[in-house]
Design a protein around this nucleic acid. Structure first.
Length: 212
DNA sequence: GCGACAG
DNA sequence: ATCTTGTCGC
C-alpha cells in the first residue's frame, strides 16, 4: 500500500512541532485491544489533571479494515479510535497515544496522525522503538532518540530501573513538553495513566465501570 | 540482497 | 498483539 505512505509523507508536513499546550486539565488516553474473533475494541479515557481522576470512558468495537503493518499502524487503529472519541462528551486538552508520534520513518506515527485529525495537541508514548536509536540514559534517565541524524524523540525511564518508554511529539507540542507531560501522567507505573487505563478499558478490565 | 519492524 | 508463572539475579 504505497498510497498510505504517500498520505503520511504529505500529512507530516502539517505537524506542528511548536508547543501550543498550556496546562492541560482534561487528558485523554487511547488504545485498542487485540482482535477477538476478528473484532477489536478501541477505548478512550479522559482523566482530570492533576488528580488523574477518571472523568469519562468510551469504547467502540469493530473489524480493523487494515492489517498490522509496521509504519502503517494508524491506518489500522485510527478508525475505531475515532469512533470511540466521537462519543465523548468531554473535549480533552491533550491526547496521549500508545505508539509513536514523529519517531516514525515518515514522521507521521499514529499519535501525530490523530493529533492532526482532531486538531488537538498529542503525544506519542511507545513501549518500543520503531525507528532510530539512542545511547545510554543520562542522570535524568533520558536519552535522545535519533533517526537519520534527527532527534525524533526521547527514551524516558519513567519508573525505577524499568526499561524506558519512547516519547515523541504528536502535534502542537514540543519534545520537552511531551516528556514533561508523560512524566506528569505516570503514577508509579512505567506507562502514563491515560494510556494505561485506556488499555484496560479496551480489554474490558477497567475496574469501577463508567457506564461502558 | 539482508535485516528491522509501534501494536 | 499473543504464547505464559514462577524464578533467577542485581
Amino acid at each position: 500500500m504505497q498510497h498510505a505512505r504517500d498520505i503520511q509523507r504529505h500529512l507530516a508536513g502539517r505537524v506542528i512541532g511548536r508547543n501550543e499546550l498550556g496546562a492541560p486539565v482534561l487528558i485523554a488516553g487511547v488504545d485498542i485491544s487485540g482482535e477477538r474473533d476478528g473484532v477489536a475494541v478501541a477505548a478512550v479515557v479522559v482523566l482530570r489533571h492533576p488528580q488523574m481522576e477518571l472523568v469519562e470512558v468510551q469504547v467502540a468495537e469493530g473489524r480493523p479494515g487494515f492489517p498490522y503493518v509496521p509504519g502503517l499502524l494508524s491506518f489500522r487503529e485510527s478508525p475505531l479510535i475515532i469512533a470511540a472519541c466521537e462519543k465523548l462528551s468531554h473535549e480533552p486538552d491533550l491526547l496521549l497515544v500508545d505508539g509513536q508520534g514523529v519517531a516514525h520513518p515518515r514522521r507521521l506515527g499514529i499519535a501525530s496522525h490523530l493529533g492532526l485529525l482532531f486538531d488537538l495537541p498529542s503525544i506519542g508514548c511507545a513501549k518500543s522503538i520503531l525507528c532510530g536509536k539512542h545511547g545510554p540514559l543520562d542522570e535524568e534517565g533520558q536519552a535522545e532518540l535519533i533517526d537519520a541524524g534527527e532527534v525524533v524523540g526521547m527514551a524516558v525511564r519513567t519508573k525505577g530501573s524499568a526499561r524506558p518508554v519512547y516519547v515523541s511529539i504528536g502535534h502542537k507540542v514540543d519534545l520537552p513538553a511531551a516528556v514533561y507531560w508523560v512524566r506528569q501522567c505516570c503514577r508509579g507505573d512505567r506507562l502514563p495513566e491515560p494510556t494505561r487505563l485506556a488499555h484496560l478499558a479496551a480489554g474490558g478490565r477497567l475496574k469501577g465501570d463508567f457506564g461502558v
